[in-house]
Design a protein around this nucleic acid. Structure first.
Lengths: 170, 170, 170, 170
DNA sequence: TTTT
DNA sequence: TTTT
């Protein structure tokens, strides 16, 4: 049995609007770049701000909901797990990029135009089977991910064709 | 004010013995490679095992304690935060490597020779000021870190000269 | 929308064997008493041990699995949420008892007779709709719960009639 | 060694203004009542809202900071541990009340008059030695705590004499 | 009532 | 590279 736990809790602000794509099989993938901030006083007595940038990815319905309700600057709580993807750069070197796969989200600020999701529990997403997971598609956040060719492994124009459901499940 | 949270909880097993070094200023740095496992049943009904490898770094006293009580195979609970370091590879490209900075540890299995720490709370570490943090020195774990020149920014022979305290504070 | 998070992470040891019952509608309920320990050195330099006892309840399949694989002394990781139930004592006073509703469990030690669950992810449970939740049935752990009449709101003899599945899903 | 973890993460809103008292030895104690909300759809298709009330206590500087920057309705993140206190009611019965001892707080909304704490990390508190802990003083939140005689074990008028520091450490 |  |  897996005697393991891999859990992440983040509260921060998005550095940019979410980027939604769809995989070839039609699964939504939402990439976000989240900043967490910490400050400390250095030896000269000056306050120094330290920002950590996190690549966050949300799959499926959770990804669509994030894309709809979050935007650059939004404050959000994510719960998820750490995943490191392996890929090859153009020189054939094995490279790694680490991201947080969001499994739950709680929106702490208002969305665009004051829109706010309408109901209950934290948003929860489904994700593809782990085997489907592979490197690619980091929306553009920091973190050393592979080159993000827009719509890389998804269908084109996904963002535009996204139709928000009227009955949000949360 | 920082309205941020950056928290990680891991339970897993070490893939190798911890590697302890000391920085030039004498701060202990312990690098560990931790596996978390998950399995799922694929569409063919076969159970597939998925392993995630985490670069974990513990600073100061916590690092020394980890080095003393943990070894390849040890099961351990870590609590900490995600940190992504930036560095340059030999071609001058900016690269990133992500690790978990451990702030607390709880040893869930026995240490070498059945040794077990002797007291109370979860082990806690101190760390250098964030400004001191920079890329370099990932002990050799996976994750695409910078080339680990042994003893890179520390004094030589640190591991050997380490003298465990008789009065462990935990 | 609920902009809330209610999350608990515990690692500790069971003070007694789990107690499994079934509700009238056939849902399994497993009550456990979990100790977490902390020690500190007081002003006289003596080490003082502090134990915190937690009432943990697991519903459904997760409860059955806990009942099968855990016993007095078992070390276990629980993740769940805090719930406070309201009830009336025999004098008609409103009383409260707080418990942790387990949503995930990871077994950190061996079970009875060295038995160990056989597969993947942390065990996960389903629970009844929150509306079904009410005070009652705390297995006998500390915490000021209501008087625990055996089989209080379940069918009689549940524990004895429990038939473990042959195909554990985890 | 304590191989234990006792950790709570809450995001919710205060149901009332914080209540600050001081113990006889001058330690600040801030009691708060925090609501976390969850909603679900029942079998009739109606959305039902479920609110969980948490007694949260913050000691020392953290308590003072909470008292200064939080008020009824404030959204806040708390991280801490579960503690169950034992006490005797007027009939001599042993009673228990459970609360969350906050160890860190992150303020997610603005404070009174738009005031916002001025710096870096999540607020952190110190607490008295565990031996000092005993039942008493739940500020008035739900949870079945002991009768809260105002100023129970503290000095009188603490709240009024509270002088906020000019140099907030966070 | 556990564990170390 | 771990663990089950």
């Amino acid at each position: 049995m897996a005697r393991s736990v891999n859990k992440v809790v983040l509260i921060g602000n998005l550095g940019d609007d979410p980027e939604l794509r769809y995989t070839g099989s039609g699964t939504a993938v939402c990439n976000m770049s989240l900043a967490t901030n910490e400050s400390y006083t250095n030896s000269d007595g000056e306050e120094v701000q330290q920002t950590e940038w996190h690549d966050v990815v949300a799959w499926g319905r959770l990804g669509e909901v994030c894309n709809e309700y979050l935007e650059r600057g939004s404050q959000v709580y994510f719960e998820g797990k750490i995943e490191t993807n392996q890929w090859e750069d153009q020189d054939g070197n094995t490279r790694y990029s680490t991201e947080v796969k969001a499994l739950e989200a709680t929106f702490l600020g208002e969305g665009p135009d004051g829109a706010v999701p309408g109901g209950g529990q934290p948003a929860q997403g489904q994700s593809p089977a782990p085997s489907q997971r592979r490197a690619g598609g980091q929306g553009g956040a920091s973190g050393g991910g592979p080159p993000s060719q827009s719509g890389g492994d998804g269908q084109p124009g996904s963002d535009e064709t996204f139709e928000p459901d009227d009955d949000l499940p949360f």
